[in-house]
């Protein structure tokens, strides 16, 4: 839900082009006056969001760019240090490690999308109980991430957690998930898939239900098998929603923080779950390296922007 990328012109009538005046000049003068008053009111109506944009987006961006060239603890006045922060970033193994962890965790995105598509296909059948299951699958989505992270931290407990007990039933001796660098990332990824499944499934389901039935009927008459129909009709028709989900998931995935902050407050064993936002947060608000943290946060912003733009290209 974080980002909605709009086509420049949404479908529907283009937003009111200035009308050619039809009558004589006095009418035109009158309509100009009317327009001007309308302009004033319209400007007033959009004033708050525009002001908010200036105050809480534009100004902070400018501030961030300037700050990224300084050494600053947030209290005394900043000292200009040129590109030092960026040079430091290149040599900072913790930065690279947390960036790598973030990218690694984002590999859960395709898995989650695939699972949710399969579920949506299953729910799209003429079958009783789909509404009920839709609700069930959606509950983790609306639940607070803090509560969910607390719950899963407990569920991943090596000896008494739900996960290992479930694994025990099928004879697997589960690891101590969050204390083991080999499994800590995987643990967070599984939880993320679990939490996000309902959202993608719902969007896929809506998209599936909007595919015109005639397409399948026509294909069936032409002798296309179910599998052929899936590849030739369903997959292309699902492309826009897949695109939307990939973009929003990448934007969200690049910003994983709460899970790490709650489940592995120190960045996990051997720094194995530290994400980029977690590292920014720690540099800024624990170590008070505001300048350095700002430089990293600008890199994150740039990265998200580039990845999103690449999706459009």
């Amino acid at each position: 839900m974080t980002a909605t990328i709009a086509p420049p012109q949404p479908p529907g009538p283009p937003p009111a082009p200035p009308r050619p005046s039809r009558r004589d000049r006095s009418a035109r003068a009158c309509s100009n006056r009317l327009h001007r008053s309308e302009h004033r009111t319209a400007a007033l109506f959009i004033a708050l969001p525009v002001l908010g944009f200036a105050l809480f987006v534009l100004y902070p961006i400018g501030f961030a760019v300037v700050t990224s060239f300084t050494a600053w603890n947030g209290i005394t006045s900043p000292v200009f240090t040129g590109l030092d922060n960026y040079v430091r970033m290149i040599g900072d193994q913790y930065f690279w490690k947390s960036l790598g962890n973030t990218v690694y965790m984002m590999m859960a995105i395709p898995v989650g999308l695939l699972l949710s598509l399969v579920l949506a296909l299953a729910m799209n059948r003429r079958m009783r109980g789909t509404t009920f299951f839709r609700t069930i699958y959606y509950i983790p989505v609306i639940s607070s991430i803090a509560a969910i992270a607390i719950l899963w931290q407990w569920a991943y407990n090596g000896d008494f957690g739900l996960i290992n007990q479930a694994l025990g039933m099928v004879g697997i001796d589960g690891p101590n998930w969050l204390q083991n660098p080999a499994t800590s990332k995987l643990a967070i990824m599984i939880m993320a898939v679990w939490k996000g499944l309902g959202f993608s499934m719902l969007l896929y389901l809506a998209a599936l239900q909007s595919v015109p039935r005639q397409l399948y009927e026509a294909a069936a008459i032409d002798g296309a098998s179910t599998l052929q129909q899936f590849w030739a009709i369903t997959v292309p028709m699902l492309r826009p929603v897949t695109f939307f989900l990939v973009v929003t998931n990448i934007i969200g995935g690049a910003q994983i923080f709460v899970e790490v902050n709650i489940m592995t407050p120190d960045g996990g064993p051997e720094f194995s779950t530290a994400t980029i936002v977690w590292y920014i947060w720690r540099q800024a608000f624990e170590y008070l390296n505001m300048g350095y943290a700002t430089a990293i946060s600008l890199m994150l912003g740039l990265l998200v922007f580039v990845v999103t733009a690449l999706q459009f290209a």
Partner: peptide, 21 residues
């Protein structure tokens, strides 16, 4: 469109300047 583009800027990029404000 400029307002809309702002959604693409992640909050962590803005949070330190906002905090200072």
């Amino acid at each position: 469109l400029s307002l809309l583009a702002a959604i693409m800027i992640p909050f962590p990029t803005l949070m330190i300047p906002q905090f200072q404000m």
